[in-house]
Amino acid sequence: MALINSTYGKGRVRIMRVKRDTARHEVRELSVKTLLTGGFDRVFTDADNSAALCTDTVKNITWIVARENVGLDSELYGKALAQKFLDAYPQVETVTVISEETKWTRMVVDGEEQDHGFILDANGKPTVTVEATRAGMAVTSGLSGFTFMKSTESGWDKFFKDEYTTLAETRDRIAATAMEARWRWSRDPADYAAANALILKTMLKVFVSTYSESVQDSLYRMGMAALDAVPELIDIHMACPNKHYVPINLKPFGMDYDNMVLLPTDEPHGQIECTVGRD
Protein backbone atom coordinates (compact mmCIF):
# COMPACT_ATOMS: atom_id res chain seq x y z
CA MET A 1 0.00 0.00 0.00
CA ALA A 2 1.15 3.52 -0.72
CA LEU A 3 0.22 7.14 -0.17
CA ILE A 4 -1.62 8.10 -3.38
CA ASN A 5 -1.77 11.85 -2.86
CA SER A 6 -1.68 14.36 -0.05
CA THR A 7 -2.25 18.01 0.69
CA TYR A 8 -2.60 20.16 3.77
CA GLY A 9 -2.88 23.78 4.84
CA LYS A 10 -5.17 26.12 6.71
CA GLY A 11 -8.88 26.76 6.20
CA ARG A 12 -11.34 29.41 7.29
CA VAL A 13 -8.68 32.05 7.79
CA ARG A 14 -10.85 35.14 8.12
CA ILE A 15 -9.71 38.60 7.07
CA MET A 16 -11.28 42.02 6.79
CA ARG A 17 -9.13 44.24 4.58
CA VAL A 18 -9.83 47.98 4.83
CA LYS A 19 -8.24 50.23 2.23
CA ARG A 20 -8.18 53.62 3.93
CA ASP A 21 -5.63 55.72 2.04
CA THR A 22 -8.40 58.22 1.21
CA ALA A 23 -11.54 59.36 3.00
CA ARG A 24 -13.53 56.87 0.88
CA HIS A 25 -12.75 53.48 2.37
CA GLU A 26 -13.01 50.11 0.63
CA VAL A 27 -13.70 46.91 2.56
CA ARG A 28 -13.13 43.30 1.53
CA GLU A 29 -14.01 40.48 3.94
CA LEU A 30 -12.71 37.02 3.03
CA SER A 31 -12.58 33.49 4.35
CA VAL A 32 -9.45 31.88 2.87
CA LYS A 33 -8.33 28.27 2.55
CA THR A 34 -4.75 27.61 1.41
CA LEU A 35 -3.58 24.09 0.55
CA LEU A 36 -0.01 23.02 -0.17
CA THR A 37 1.35 20.03 -2.06
CA GLY A 38 4.96 19.04 -2.62
CA GLY A 39 7.68 17.40 -0.58
CA PHE A 40 5.52 16.48 2.37
CA ASP A 41 4.90 12.76 1.87
CA ARG A 42 7.26 11.75 4.70
CA VAL A 43 5.16 13.73 7.14
CA PHE A 44 2.38 11.23 6.43
CA THR A 45 4.38 8.06 5.90
CA ASP A 46 7.47 8.32 8.11
CA ALA A 47 6.50 10.67 10.97
CA ASP A 48 9.15 13.05 9.57
CA ASN A 49 8.06 16.67 10.05
CA SER A 50 11.32 18.27 8.97
CA ALA A 51 9.96 19.70 5.70
CA ALA A 52 6.50 20.58 6.97
CA LEU A 53 5.24 24.13 7.42
CA CYS A 54 3.01 24.62 10.45
CA THR A 55 -0.56 25.28 9.42
CA ASP A 56 -0.31 28.19 11.87
CA THR A 57 2.47 29.57 9.64
CA VAL A 58 0.12 29.29 6.66
CA LYS A 59 -2.40 31.37 8.62
CA ASN A 60 0.21 34.00 9.51
CA ILE A 61 1.34 34.35 5.90
CA THR A 62 -2.30 34.69 4.80
CA TRP A 63 -2.64 37.66 7.15
CA ILE A 64 0.73 39.18 6.23
CA VAL A 65 0.02 39.11 2.48
CA ALA A 66 -3.39 40.65 3.21
CA ARG A 67 -1.69 43.55 5.00
CA GLU A 68 0.73 43.97 2.11
CA ASN A 69 -2.14 44.00 -0.41
CA VAL A 70 -5.14 45.64 1.23
CA GLY A 71 -6.37 47.15 -2.04
CA LEU A 72 -6.11 44.19 -4.39
CA ASP A 73 -9.13 42.38 -5.82
CA SER A 74 -9.56 38.87 -4.41
CA GLU A 75 -8.12 37.27 -7.55
CA LEU A 76 -4.91 39.27 -7.40
CA TYR A 77 -4.65 38.82 -3.63
CA GLY A 78 -4.93 35.05 -4.13
CA LYS A 79 -2.16 35.16 -6.74
CA ALA A 80 0.08 37.20 -4.42
CA LEU A 81 -0.53 34.76 -1.56
CA ALA A 82 0.25 31.72 -3.71
CA GLN A 83 3.41 33.35 -5.06
CA LYS A 84 4.60 34.04 -1.50
CA PHE A 85 4.61 30.31 -0.71
CA LEU A 86 6.28 29.37 -3.99
CA ASP A 87 9.01 31.97 -3.48
CA ALA A 88 9.68 31.21 0.17
CA TYR A 89 9.52 27.41 0.34
CA PRO A 90 11.29 25.19 -2.23
CA GLN A 91 9.50 22.11 -0.92
CA VAL A 92 6.15 23.58 -2.04
CA GLU A 93 5.21 22.52 -5.57
CA THR A 94 1.56 23.56 -5.85
CA VAL A 95 -0.47 26.13 -3.94
CA THR A 96 -4.26 26.25 -4.06
CA VAL A 97 -5.90 29.36 -2.64
CA ILE A 98 -9.68 29.32 -2.30
CA SER A 99 -11.46 32.41 -1.01
CA GLU A 100 -15.08 33.23 -0.31
CA GLU A 101 -16.12 36.85 0.11
CA THR A 102 -18.70 38.32 2.43
CA LYS A 103 -20.07 41.21 0.38
CA TRP A 104 -20.51 44.69 1.80
CA THR A 105 -22.18 47.42 -0.28
CA ARG A 106 -22.06 51.12 0.37
CA MET A 107 -24.73 52.64 2.58
CA VAL A 108 -26.80 55.32 0.85
CA VAL A 109 -28.08 58.23 2.95
CA ASP A 110 -30.19 60.99 1.38
CA GLY A 111 -29.24 59.67 -2.05
CA GLU A 112 -25.49 59.81 -1.38
CA GLU A 113 -23.14 56.85 -1.11
CA GLN A 114 -21.30 56.94 2.21
CA ASP A 115 -17.51 56.87 2.36
CA HIS A 116 -17.26 54.55 5.35
CA GLY A 117 -20.77 53.13 5.89
CA PHE A 118 -21.66 49.67 4.56
CA ILE A 119 -24.57 47.21 4.49
CA LEU A 120 -24.26 43.43 4.28
CA ASP A 121 -25.25 42.07 0.87
CA ALA A 122 -26.50 38.59 1.66
CA ASN A 123 -27.27 37.47 -1.92
CA GLY A 124 -24.52 35.05 -2.84
CA LYS A 125 -20.82 34.99 -2.08
CA PRO A 126 -18.10 35.76 -4.64
CA THR A 127 -15.52 32.99 -4.84
CA VAL A 128 -11.96 32.79 -6.20
CA THR A 129 -9.70 29.78 -6.71
CA VAL A 130 -6.03 30.18 -7.61
CA GLU A 131 -4.03 27.08 -8.64
CA ALA A 132 -0.34 27.99 -8.69
CA THR A 133 2.87 26.18 -9.60
CA ARG A 134 6.23 27.54 -10.66
CA ALA A 135 5.13 26.98 -14.26
CA GLY A 136 2.15 29.33 -13.95
CA MET A 137 -1.18 30.17 -12.34
CA ALA A 138 -4.80 29.46 -13.21
CA VAL A 139 -7.51 31.72 -11.81
CA THR A 140 -11.21 30.89 -11.50
CA SER A 141 -13.79 33.37 -10.20
CA GLY A 142 -17.44 32.78 -9.45
CA LEU A 143 -20.50 33.10 -7.26
CA SER A 144 -22.02 30.73 -4.71
CA GLY A 145 -25.70 30.76 -3.83
CA PHE A 146 -26.64 33.79 -5.95
CA THR A 147 -30.45 33.76 -5.99
CA PHE A 148 -32.67 35.33 -8.63
CA MET A 149 -36.10 34.81 -10.20
CA LYS A 150 -38.68 36.11 -12.61
CA SER A 151 -42.42 35.73 -12.08
CA THR A 152 -43.36 35.04 -15.73
CA GLU A 153 -41.88 34.71 -19.23
CA SER A 154 -40.79 31.15 -18.47
CA GLY A 155 -42.22 27.82 -19.56
CA TRP A 156 -41.66 24.08 -19.72
CA ASP A 157 -43.50 22.19 -22.46
CA LYS A 158 -43.09 19.87 -25.46
CA PHE A 159 -40.92 17.58 -23.34
CA PHE A 160 -40.57 13.81 -23.68
CA LYS A 161 -43.50 11.93 -22.16
CA ASP A 162 -44.12 8.30 -21.28
CA GLU A 163 -46.16 6.31 -18.77
CA TYR A 164 -44.11 7.76 -15.89
CA THR A 165 -44.73 11.42 -16.78
CA THR A 166 -47.16 13.29 -14.54
CA LEU A 167 -46.00 16.90 -14.91
CA ALA A 168 -48.29 19.19 -16.89
CA GLU A 169 -46.98 21.50 -19.60
CA THR A 170 -46.94 25.23 -18.97
CA ARG A 171 -46.03 28.41 -20.85
CA ASP A 172 -46.24 30.63 -17.77
CA ARG A 173 -44.38 29.78 -14.62
CA ILE A 174 -42.00 31.32 -12.10
CA ALA A 175 -38.33 30.67 -12.85
CA ALA A 176 -36.06 30.88 -9.79
CA THR A 177 -32.72 29.45 -8.76
CA ALA A 178 -29.79 29.77 -6.36
CA MET A 179 -26.91 29.66 -8.82
CA GLU A 180 -23.43 28.25 -8.32
CA ALA A 181 -21.22 29.63 -11.07
CA ARG A 182 -17.54 29.77 -11.85
CA TRP A 183 -15.61 31.20 -14.77
CA ARG A 184 -12.00 30.68 -15.82
CA TRP A 185 -9.67 33.42 -16.98
CA SER A 186 -7.17 33.18 -19.84
CA ARG A 187 -5.46 36.34 -18.55
CA ASP A 188 -6.02 39.12 -16.03
CA PRO A 189 -8.69 41.62 -17.09
CA ALA A 190 -7.98 45.31 -16.63
CA ASP A 191 -10.16 45.24 -13.48
CA TYR A 192 -11.39 42.00 -11.93
CA ALA A 193 -14.18 43.65 -9.95
CA ALA A 194 -15.52 45.46 -13.02
CA ALA A 195 -15.25 42.35 -15.20
CA ASN A 196 -17.04 40.18 -12.63
CA ALA A 197 -19.79 42.77 -12.29
CA LEU A 198 -20.20 42.87 -16.08
CA ILE A 199 -20.46 39.06 -16.27
CA LEU A 200 -23.27 39.01 -13.71
CA LYS A 201 -25.04 42.03 -15.23
CA THR A 202 -24.91 40.45 -18.69
CA MET A 203 -26.26 37.10 -17.54
CA LEU A 204 -29.12 38.65 -15.56
CA LYS A 205 -30.10 40.83 -18.53
CA VAL A 206 -30.46 37.75 -20.71
CA PHE A 207 -32.41 35.94 -18.00
CA VAL A 208 -34.94 38.67 -17.29
CA SER A 209 -35.40 40.18 -20.75
CA THR A 210 -35.94 37.06 -22.89
CA TYR A 211 -38.46 34.24 -22.76
CA SER A 212 -37.10 31.08 -21.14
CA GLU A 213 -38.09 27.82 -22.85
CA SER A 214 -36.33 26.04 -19.98
CA VAL A 215 -33.65 26.69 -17.39
CA GLN A 216 -31.30 24.89 -19.79
CA ASP A 217 -32.19 27.33 -22.57
CA SER A 218 -31.57 30.36 -20.36
CA LEU A 219 -28.29 29.09 -18.95
CA TYR A 220 -26.79 28.45 -22.38
CA ARG A 221 -27.71 31.90 -23.64
CA MET A 222 -26.53 33.55 -20.40
CA GLY A 223 -23.16 31.84 -20.73
CA MET A 224 -22.82 32.79 -24.40
CA ALA A 225 -23.56 36.43 -23.59
CA ALA A 226 -21.00 36.48 -20.76
CA LEU A 227 -18.28 35.13 -23.07
CA ASP A 228 -19.16 37.77 -25.68
CA ALA A 229 -19.01 40.55 -23.09
CA VAL A 230 -15.70 39.58 -21.45
CA PRO A 231 -13.03 38.38 -23.90
CA GLU A 232 -10.65 37.29 -21.10
CA LEU A 233 -12.96 34.40 -20.16
CA ILE A 234 -12.10 30.84 -21.17
CA ASP A 235 -15.42 29.31 -20.15
CA ILE A 236 -18.20 29.57 -17.60
CA HIS A 237 -19.88 26.79 -15.61
CA MET A 238 -23.33 27.24 -14.08
CA ALA A 239 -25.21 24.92 -11.73
CA CYS A 240 -28.79 25.99 -11.07
CA PRO A 241 -31.14 24.03 -8.83
CA ASN A 242 -34.76 24.91 -9.43
CA LYS A 243 -36.61 26.75 -6.69
CA HIS A 244 -40.13 25.51 -7.35
CA TYR A 245 -43.37 27.39 -6.77
CA VAL A 246 -46.23 24.92 -6.83
CA PRO A 247 -49.86 26.01 -7.47
CA ILE A 248 -51.99 25.76 -4.34
CA ASN A 249 -55.39 24.13 -4.89
CA LEU A 250 -57.98 26.66 -3.71
CA LYS A 251 -60.91 25.11 -5.58
CA PRO A 252 -62.44 23.81 -2.30
CA PHE A 253 -62.87 27.48 -1.40
CA GLY A 254 -64.45 28.44 -4.70
CA MET A 255 -61.26 30.02 -6.06
CA ASP A 256 -59.58 29.22 -9.37
CA TYR A 257 -55.84 28.92 -9.78
CA ASP A 258 -54.67 32.25 -11.21
CA ASN A 259 -50.90 31.89 -10.87
CA MET A 260 -50.96 34.30 -7.94
CA VAL A 261 -50.78 32.06 -4.85
CA LEU A 262 -48.16 29.31 -4.84
CA LEU A 263 -46.26 27.11 -2.39
CA PRO A 264 -42.45 27.68 -2.31
CA THR A 265 -40.34 24.52 -2.17
CA ASP A 266 -36.85 23.44 -3.19
CA GLU A 267 -37.04 19.75 -2.22
CA PRO A 268 -36.78 17.81 -4.42
CA HIS A 269 -35.44 20.15 -7.06
CA GLY A 270 -34.31 19.92 -10.64
CA GLN A 271 -30.52 20.23 -10.97
CA ILE A 272 -29.43 21.84 -14.23
CA GLU A 273 -25.73 22.35 -15.02
CA CYS A 274 -23.76 23.35 -18.08
CA THR A 275 -20.40 24.71 -19.14
CA VAL A 276 -20.19 27.16 -22.04
CA GLY A 277 -16.78 27.80 -23.56
CA ARG A 278 -15.05 29.11 -26.64
CA ASP A 279 -14.60 26.84 -29.66
Rank of each mutant, 00 (worst) to 15 (best):
M1Y: 11
M1N: 13
Y8Q: 00
V13G: 15
R17D: 03
R17P: 05
A23E: 14
E26M: 06
E29C: 07
L30M: 05
L36M: 14
F40R: 03
T45W: 12
D46R: 15
D46V: 05
A47L: 14
N49M: 08
T55P: 01
T57L: 13
V58R: 05
T62L: 04
I64P: 04
Y77S: 03
G78Q: 08
K79P: 04
K84Y: 10
V95N: 07
T102S: 10
W104C: 05
W104A: 07
T105L: 14
M107C: 11
Q114L: 07
V130G: 04
T133R: 09
R134H: 09
M137K: 07
T140W: 00
G145R: 14
S151W: 09
S151L: 14
T152E: 12
G155M: 11
T166Q: 12
L167P: 00
E169D: 15
T170C: 07
D172V: 01
T177Y: 01
A178S: 15
A178N: 11
A181N: 01
W185Q: 13
P189F: 05
A190P: 09
A193G: 01
A197G: 07
S209F: 00
E213P: 08
L219Q: 00
Y220G: 06
M224Y: 07
M224T: 11
V230A: 08
P231E: 08
M238H: 02
I248L: 14
P252T: 06
L262E: 15
E273F: 08
G277S: 08
R278P: 11
D279V: 12
